[in-house]
Design a protein around this nucleic acid. Structure first.
Length: 476
RNA sequence: GCCGGGUUGGCCGAGCGGUUCAGGCAGCGGGCUGCAGACCCGUAGACGGGGGUUCGAAUCCCCCACCCGGCUCCA
């Protein structure tokens, strides 16, 4: 795609649509808050990570060289508590759910992350940042830990619009050792029986926000382009990151573009583990193709909430089938290896080019995936229409249309026509075997043999045995 | 209470000042079809309520109602 087209994104920091201009030319650095690995991931997580995966795919398609970094929170109260309940080591538990997370992401075709960084691998960086923040007077030590003094950072609240004074009102468990109710922990002292590390300020664990700045500054330096995450993280998590990073480095802004995704709700309530109303990714994938999930999640603009119902996945499945059929019809056309493109074909190619442009313009307009999908359906429509009328296309013409499809599939992360899963193959072969058994019973051996011979041609060998017909894939 | 976001046809959702409000799902009529499906053509149906600004508003302003999120770990 053209490298000079203009992308616009909504920046939470400025509360407005901004032209996307990376800090370093075509090089883009993006950090997205990853999961806390203490349980299976649910559709809410899928929503966020499918979106950033799509953003990453789009930027790369637009010829940006993107480095996409994601943290894995493997040190956290929830992990420690659950591990204690199960009598396991916290990090062992964390590794298990981290593995499931990667499996789920792979299933959803979320493949764009360059590096996953575990919080537990960044203790030296965390110590260093806390040390400097103390030295600069932004933090202080008490008997319960190390805290960031928000009064030393006048910009605190600039991302979320929260005013520090207002925050006093609704503190739930005020820590009397803190200077201000809104101060957040950089380091929390813990009893020695608990999992933790020795630090210069006592035994314990890092605070809630420091891992992200430790990881991102280590890999990206003092400034980078995009920080993503769900909107629920804007306050206090991202606000705290800004305070830590800008106080630590003295460089503003820490991040040029703050991008936040809307939440996934269930019957109007946030899908979350604590509410118990969640559907795990693997549960959904038992019933629906990953492409269906992606279409469902991308059919609404990323900043809007999505209210989940199973019925909506049924709708998305029907939509997906339309795409598969359209693409299938294209593959099914008569290809003329060296014919001339007719007028009808030239018209088709013109329309396809227009649609392709529409698709990318939609994506450039603050990642309007809903509109982009509409363009994909337009493409299906014109292809079907052409298929119905003529169905004959030159090889070059078809290649162009295929490219339009695959460009869109690449960006949306859809895997269409990339082969079939094994269960489908097995089912298919069993159907043929059953039909053949009926033919044999009727002594219609010509047809039965025909089936066996034709299967052999495509590499499937049937063997009639006393226990029934068996089959295997022949290596050739 | 404070800070964000939202309310578009039966369902899901674009559009955010200017031709008859995209697209998908589900309908309906027709075509193609041994049947079914797919596909094609056609068709119907919506801007939460009330004021205002404007030649013109789903789009801007005000008021009201309802919904969601954040202010506490959370994608």
């Amino acid at each position: 795609m053209t490298a000079f087209a203009e992308i616009r994104v909504y920046n939470t920091l400025s509360k407005s649509l901004e032209k996307f201009v990376p800090l370093h030319g075509r090089r883009v650095f993006m950090f997205v808050c990853g999961p806390t690995v203490y349980d299976y991931s649910h559709l809410g997580h899928a929503r966020t990570y499918v979106f950033y995966d799509t953003l990453a795919r789009f930027l790369r398609k637009m010829d940006y060289s993107l480095f996409y970094l994601q943290n894995i929170t493997d040190v956290d109260d929830k992990i420690v508590n659950r591990a204690r309940e199960e009598g396991r080591h916290p990090l062992e538990l964390a590794r298990e759910f981290e593995r499931y997370y990667h499996e789920d992401m792979a299933a959803l075709n979320v493949t764009s992350v360059n590096l996953y960084a575990r919080a537990s691998d960044y203790l030296p960086e965390i110590f260093e940042q806390i040390r400097v923040l103390l030295e600069k007077g932004h933090a202080y030590v008490t008997e319960t830990g190390v805290y960031f003094d928000i009064t030393t950072f006048p910009d605190y609240g600039k991302l979320s619009g929260q005013k520090p004074e207002e925050l006093k009102v609704h503190r739930i468990e005020p820590d009397p050792t803190k200077r201000n109710p809104g101060d957040f922990a950089l380091w929390r002292n813990r009893p020695r029986e608990e999992f933790g590390w020795e630090s210069p300020w006592g035994y314990g664990r890092p605070g809630w926000h420091i891992e992200d700045t430790a990881i991102s500054i280590k890999h990206f330096g003092k400034q980078y382009d995009i920080h993503g995450g769900a909107i629920e993280l804007a306050f206090p998590h991202h606000e705290a990151e800004i305070a830590q990073a800008e106080s630590y480095t003295g460089v503003k802004p820490f991040v040029k573009y703050w991008i936040h995704t809307g939440l996934l709700t269930v019957e109007g309530e946030k899908m979350s583990k604590s509410l118990g109303n969640f559907v795990t990714i693997r549960e959904a994938l038992k019933k629906y193709d990953p492409n269906v999930l992606r279409i469902f999640l991308l059919s609404r603009h990323y900043r809007s909430p999505i209210d989940f119902r199973w019925e909506l996945l049924d709708q998305a499945r029907s939509s997906y089938e339309r795409i598969v059929n359209g693409y299938g019809n294209l593959m099914d056309m008569d290809v003329m290896e060296d014919g001339e493109a007719g007028e009808r074909e030239n018209d088709l190619l013109k329309e396809v080019e227009k649609i392709r442009r529409g698709f990318f313009e939609a994506m450039m307009d603050d990642l309007n995936t809903a509109e982009a999908l509409a363009q994909l359906f337009e493409l299906v429509r014109v292809v079907n229409s052409f298929y119905e009328e003529s169905g004959r296309i030159t090889a070059a013409g078809r290649a162009e249309v295929v490219t339009a499809f695959t460009d869109m599939f690449d960006v949306l992360g859809l895997r269409v026509g990339e082969g079939y899963d094994e269960s489908m193959l097995r089912n298919l072969v069993s159907i043929l075997i059953e039909v053949r058994a009926i033919l044999r019973k009727r002594k219609e051996y010509d047809l039965a043999d025909e089936i066996r011979a034709r299967l052999r041609e495509v590499g499937i060998e049937l063997q009639d045995t006393p226990e029934g017909t068996k089959w295997r894939i022949k290596r050739s």
